[in-house]
Write a protein that binds this DNA or RNA. Structure first.
Lengths: 224, 224
DNA sequence: CAGTATCCATTTCGATACTG
DNA sequence: CAGTATCGAAATGGATACTG
């Protein structure tokens, strides 16, 4: 590909990487997604044909390797792909510092829960099945209720009631929960201000915060 | 802008940065270009209207500040823009390691000389005017001859003979010179192999290598 | 110098439906 | 599960010429 007609390595890199969605797919692969439909959940607004096309481009570019193991297709980053981690980290670090404004369109409960389920601190949780419920009163049904079911080291995201007893229910605006996840506001501050509400056994309510890890970019210091 | 519909900071960053040419403009600003026509030389394949449009977008995004000082317009990076340096560096570092293949289309003598003129080691040069000539026998006239004229701390790139006596003439293929600039091959090796030829006074031929700095990415270690 | 204006070809994408 | 097929709308951008 010769989009820019420049020998500059930044230009050569961007020839592959500046296509829409591409770096988000790489972000997904970097955070552990391996299968087509798993990737789709990370980029839900992308059509499957476009995702498939991008994966082919990335494979041709030597960034992704497609594998077929007994009827199960998986995509993995090559060494070149893995080395894009610093790029993605730099981009996210910049983004969290300088693009604070989120549109309503940017909020997505499915995506939020999907991110959370990948970052649970399972070791901090008691043995046995744990069920967390999230309720977003400002979201239209049926997308206003979600469950994280943790059993052993398996974590499921459910958008329908899995039927198990719920240990803790977290209730609050989708924007609030999203901003907590991004590290824009503090969990404790939101609870204190009443914009986040916890229900469940007192000893669990106190520790649930420790079960949830935040976004990897939450800890990035913000401009003063 | 809401291209992706994601709250993820990587997505929010890419909404601004993944547009074609955008990161190359930022690269130019990071390397010191300030004026419209100066920027154009760094992205020669971009139409002026598109450059103008991108600069407006970047200004709206808070990355660039447009200034008008007594009839002279200039563009400068804001703090947010300056903080994109690690992003550009990560991209270039990745690009130099993993995209080694250059198409014929990627070679551009004007761009190469433009890059070189920004990176001359003027302190290492003797006082008085120094003129370097570059000849690319494999390039069609008139783009096969270029001059760098250094006078004091002023450096000019000429595509027509400036008329001054030439101190050193560097002759070699455009690909060779480009690869040296990128750090893909060594100056000394190219001279040794005869793919680069120097003419001029012996004492100047010996030191000219020290006058030219290479691309900032030349020193990045390559995959083994 | 520092841009605008115009215009059309092309690319790109999103939506939707379908398949082994 | 892992994609492909199709299609039309919209965005995008390149070329070129022009301006205060």
């Amino acid at each position: 590909m010769t989009r820019y007609g420049q020998f500059c390595p930044v230009a050569k890199a961007m020839e592959v990487l500046d296509e829409r969605w591409t770096l988000l797919i790489i972000r997904e692969l970097l955070s552990g997604s391996r299968h087509f439909n798993e990737l789709r959940r990370g980029v839900p607004r992308m059509s499957p044909s476009l995702l498939s096309q991008r994966l082919r481009t990335l494979t041709r570019a030597g960034i992704v390797e497609r594998r077929e193991d007994r009827n199960r297709v998986s995509y993995e980053l090559t060494t070149a792909g893995e080395e894009l981690r610093p790029v993605v980290e730099a981009l996210g670090g910049w983004g969290i510092r300088w693009i604070g404004e989120l549109g309503v369109e940017d909020l997505d409960p499915h995506l939020l829960l999907w991110d959370m389920h990948r970052n649970l601190n399972i070791d901090a949780m008691p043995d046995g099945r744990i069920v967390l419920a999230f309720v977003f009163p400002d979201v239209a049904r049926p997308a206003d209720r979600w469950w994280l079911v943790v059993d052993g080291d398996e974590v499921d995201v459910c958008d329908v009631d899995p039927g198990h007893p719920v240990d803790v229910t977290v209730t609050g605006g989708l924007a609030t929960m999203t901003r907590i996840w991004r590290g824009d506001i503090e969990w404790d501050a939101a609870v204190g201000a009443g914009s986040l509400e916890l229900t469940g056994a007192a000893h669990l309510r106190r520790v649930v915060r420790g079960w949830l890890r935040l976004s990897g970019f939450a800890a990035v210091p913000r401009p003063t």
